[in-house]
Simulated scan of single mutants.
Amino acid sequence: MKILLVDGTVLGRKTGAILEEIQGYIEQFDGTLDLELVRFSDYEHQIVDGRPFDQYNTGMQELVRKLESADGYIFATPIFQGSIPGVLKNTLDFLNPKALRYKPVSIVANGGTHQHHLVVENQFKPILDYFRALVTPNYVYTHTSHFDDQNNIIDENVHERLQELARVFVKYCELSANLPKQPLD
């Protein structure tokens, strides 16, 4: 299974640092999964404006094709101004509505206040529900205080929660493998 660890921002390093930790935990539970870290900062983003898909730059076309062809996802997002970043929402707007159907998805997020974890519940999960993704019930929200100056996670409870998220995600991958997928039209 091709699993994308998606760093859904073009700024900062904390979400990428979280994904690097999760990658190690997933590999401990299932070394057969093909994991790829996808950083939005590696792509030149364009706004979805209704033009034909082939008129967008090659970077956006590559990113969308990569997302649509994967078998599962760990999405990492910072919380800015009480919301997911526009670049993440814009990229999701490119996707075919069937692209994530019955595919396992886990969410990790990072924010500057402890209350911003509600963005995952009230904003990001409903978007993934629209796609009918298999969203794991446990997500991990981190706060700036969980990191040192080099963006290493220093909170043991966060490590435990990331490990548990990885364990559940691997089980969702097993479940997803037996569910029929619909072709993208």
Results as ranks from 00 to 15, higher is better:
K171D: 14
L184N: 05
A166R: 10
T9Y: 02
Q61L: 07
V87G: 01
Q123I: 11
P85N: 12
N110E: 08
Q123E: 12
D7P: 02
Q55D: 09
S176I: 09
S176H: 09
I47S: 08
T77P: 00
L92Y: 01
Q115M: 13
N157P: 02
I79M: 10
P137K: 14
A166K: 08
N122L: 10
F169T: 06
D148S: 06
R167H: 12
I154L: 09
H114T: 15
D34H: 12
D129G: 11
Q55N: 04
A17E: 04
G59P: 01
D93S: 06
S41E: 14
D93I: 07
D7N: 14
I79T: 09
E62Y: 13
L179E: 01
D49G: 02
I127P: 00
N122C: 06
S69P: 00
Q123L: 11
K14R: 15
G72D: 02
Q46K: 12
N110I: 11
K2Q: 07
E156I: 15
P104N: 07
L134P: 05
D34N: 14
N152F: 05
D155C: 12
K14W: 04
E27P: 00
T32K: 05
D129P: 00
L134R: 10
F40C: 08
A133P: 04
Q123D: 08
R51L: 05
I22F: 01
F147M: 09
V105F: 11
D93M: 03
F75H: 04
R132N: 10
A70N: 01
E68W: 02
L11A: 14
H159C: 00
T144P: 01
G111K: 02
R65P: 01
H45T: 10
G86Q: 11
P52V: 13
T113N: 05
N152E: 05
D71R: 07
N138F: 12
V170L: 14
P85Q: 10
Y139I: 06
Y102P: 01
A17I: 11
A70S: 02
E27G: 02
L4R: 03
L162N: 02
E27N: 11
L95C: 01
K103N: 04
E21S: 12
E121H: 00
S176N: 05
P137R: 13
Q61E: 07
I154K: 09
F75W: 09
T136A: 12
P52D: 14
R101D: 01
F53G: 11
V120I: 10
H114G: 15
A166F: 09
Q123W: 02
G50N: 09
D149Y: 13
S176F: 08
R161L: 13
E44S: 13
P78N: 09
T32Q: 08
N90R: 05
N178P: 03
V170H: 13
Y130G: 06
G111D: 03
T136V: 14
R132I: 06
V135M: 03
